[in-house]
Each structure stands twice: as structure tokens, then as C-alpha cells.
Design a protein around this nucleic acid. Sequence first.
DNA 1: ATATGGTACTTGGCCATACATAGTACTTTT
DNA 2: AAAAGTACTATGTATGGCCAAGTACCATAT
Lengths: 110, 110
Amino acid sequence: MNLENTQVQMRKGILEYCILHIISRGEVYASDMLEELTSAKMIVVEGTLYPLLTRLKNAGLLEYKWVESKSGPPRKYYTLTNMGKNFLDGLSDTWKDLVLSTQKITNNSK
Amino acid sequence: MNLENTQVQMRKGILEYCILHIISRGEVYASDMLEELTSAKMIVVEGTLYPLLTRLKNAGLLEYKWVESKSGPPRKYYTLTNMGKNFLDGLSDTWKDLVLSTQKITNNSK
DNA sequence: ATATGGTACTTGGCCATACATAGTACTTTT
DNA sequence: AAAAGTACTATGTATGGCCAAGTACCATAT
């Protein structure tokens, strides 16, 4: 039971929300997402991101197309499916509720 | 992969934070916490709360004393240890960072 | 042409937490 | 004595983040 471990637990689910959101703004591939997540101080590593993308794709929330790159192997560029858009909307509400609930508890000083 | 499942995932870790916070405000026992969590719309059930309290206690973050009840079996009243207080402070920062990071990403409309 | 280093993605296994479910123990009510 | 209610315990399952090792392709240096 240490802080680092709890930080990991806190990220669960939230990451999914953030990634769907990033993709909703336009075609991106994994490294784009990693860069944005890192610059927002949301710690993520490859071993987390890639399996997550695969999961979301298998669930029908994402689709991708291969695009050639000038500096390396081809890349998977992801976009949201309609189902993905709906799911993102649902997640949005869930996240807002969760933040509100937490505020309610942590601001309560009785 | 459904919404309900993701809600569960999002709660992971955050619950720990909320519970430590509730206990930090004074002696409480499990049903007190359950009531407050429910009224804040943070869905939790017995089967989640009790094991969590045991875990936190074994980690040295909580301690409890038995108190007789007028209407039923005795209760465990919990308080934070010093270690628990420090841990809660750390969690506070972690949570705030996480919310900020998420805001940064979800408000980014490029 | 071959070797080296970097980029992009894949896979298998581990661990921690939330939850469902069933069960124990004690008290009060009928 | 039986039934109902309260407080707590124990076991097993599912999921997601992460580590670590590995594959494959490209560009550059030797």
C-alpha cells in the first residue's frame, strides 16, 4: 500500500475517457496521444496505451487505417466510430458525476 | 465493455481517498460511511467497504476501537493514524493533479 | 551491403481493487 | 424459542494498468 500504487488505481477508467476524447478531435496515432497525455502530466506508458487501443477497437468504439510514414514504419491512425462517440458522451457524464461526488465529500468539513 | 463497468473502474482508488477523508473528520463506523457515500451518489456496497477498511487498517493507516451499541452488535469506530493523515495528504495532491490533467485534455478543442 | 539505432506495434503474465455472494456472530423483538 | 435486524468476515471473479520481452520495419552510418 503506497502512493504510487494508488495513483495507478486512480487512473483506471479515466485514461479510457481521456484517450477517447483525444481521438474525438481528429485522426491520431499512438505517439500523438502519448505526447499529449504526457504534456498534460497524465503518466502513461506504451504498455498501457497499446493494449487499451486494441481493447477499444475490438469493442467497436474505434477504427483505424494504416498510413505510411516518412520516418519509420507505417502508423495506425485512429478515429471514433458512432458507437465510440456515444460511449464518450456517457463517460463524460460519469466523470462529471464522479468529480462532483468527490467534491461533495472532500469539501464537507462538518 | 459497457458504461457500468467503466464507472466501476473510475471509482478505483478514488474510493480509498473519499473514505480516508470521511474518517479524517472524526470517529465513524462502517454504516456512517456508507450513508455519506450514498448520499453523495458515490455508489458503494458493503462487500466493497469492509474489505477496504481492513486493508487500510492492516496498512497502518487506520485504527479502530470497539464500541458497544444500543441496537445491535458492537461497532468498530475508525480513526486515522499519523501515517494515515500523511497518506491522505498525498492522495489529495494526486487527485487534484488527476482532475487538472483530465480537464487539460477534455477542454482542449484545438 | 551490412550493421546499428530508432520508431511503431504486439504479446503474455502479474498485481491490485471493486464487487458478488455466502456466511458468522451478536442483539432485540415477538 | 424463533425471527428479524445489524455489524462484520471470507472467498472467488473480473477488469484494467503495467512490466518486460519481442517482432517488424525504416533510416542512417560504416
